[in-house]
Amino acid sequence: MSETTILQRRFNPDRDARPWQGGSRPYDLIKEVTICFLVVTVLVVGLAFLFGSPDDKAISIQTWATANQIDFAQTSISELNGTSGTATYGPPYNNFVGSSQSLGPISLESWIGVHIPVNPAQDFVLGPLSTVANAPNVTRALDVFNAATPSQQLAWETNYATAVSHASSVNGHLVVPRGAYGPIGVMIGQLTAMAKSGALDSAMVDQSGFYGTNYTKSLLYIADSTYFAAQGTAHHLSGDQWGMMNETGNFPGQAWLWLYTFWYQVPPFSTSANADIQVSALMGLLSLLLLLVPFIPGLRSIPRWTRVYRFIWKDYYRSQG
């Protein structure tokens, strides 16, 4: 055998292509790319003039608490008593057990563990309250709360959660029915006042120092509210509304995510507690199939079977007779 082994193998029309022996013609690639760039530029400038782009203002804790202070107080007590979405999230935020998603016995989420520690009671409620100065009643309430036994704390929290579900707004003030909730009324009342004034937004960001670029805690807090969820649903952005591919207003969104968001709408995913990992795994598999199309018998034959190529190379096949 010579240095380069020339083997004959059966020609597979889905894998092989013969070297071109036919003619060629002048074709100006640089001109093509330049014209294409100019065409896209005209289209983009045109649509930017015509439609612009959406920019709905970000929701701050202040916006939320001002719009619905009862929801804010209810969410905040759920952060304190450990029943909120964030408090019961588990990894990567905290050690709560039972909410991590798994695929059969595999739960990458819980295996990797806590990497972005978030303790809602401390980070969202007690920490910001401890920064309040010149408010003896708040300091006293915090001292009483911190000195109490966990079971006493829990009893107060539970009683407050019940009471705040009947809360009302009177002249802009949060009014919670009386109950045996110890210092919690003062604490959540103060936290609500801080939220409405904007002080809580700063207190949350200040936890990471002067130069804040990480909004994980503020966003988790806001996302625990029913107010935020309602904003998303109103904009048709919820997961069960195919929200992943939607944009605010009438703008096109990430239409290329159609298949990803589609799976969330149909069983078994639409009713699964493990939908996220199931859909991710399925999309991972489908992505792998797309990547490996050239090697997968059957899949790589679809172009030959559908015969769309006859239109693309119609001039060539016509000349072949």
């Binding site: 295996w111 966003l219 935020f228 996220d276």
Partner: peptide, 15 residues
């Protein structure tokens, strides 16, 4: 804000 808080669940689920 919305996309980040929604997408976190999908990303977290994969670890």
């Amino acid at each position: 804000q919305w996309i980040a808080t929604q997408a976190k669940d999908g990303i977290n689920a994969t670890g």
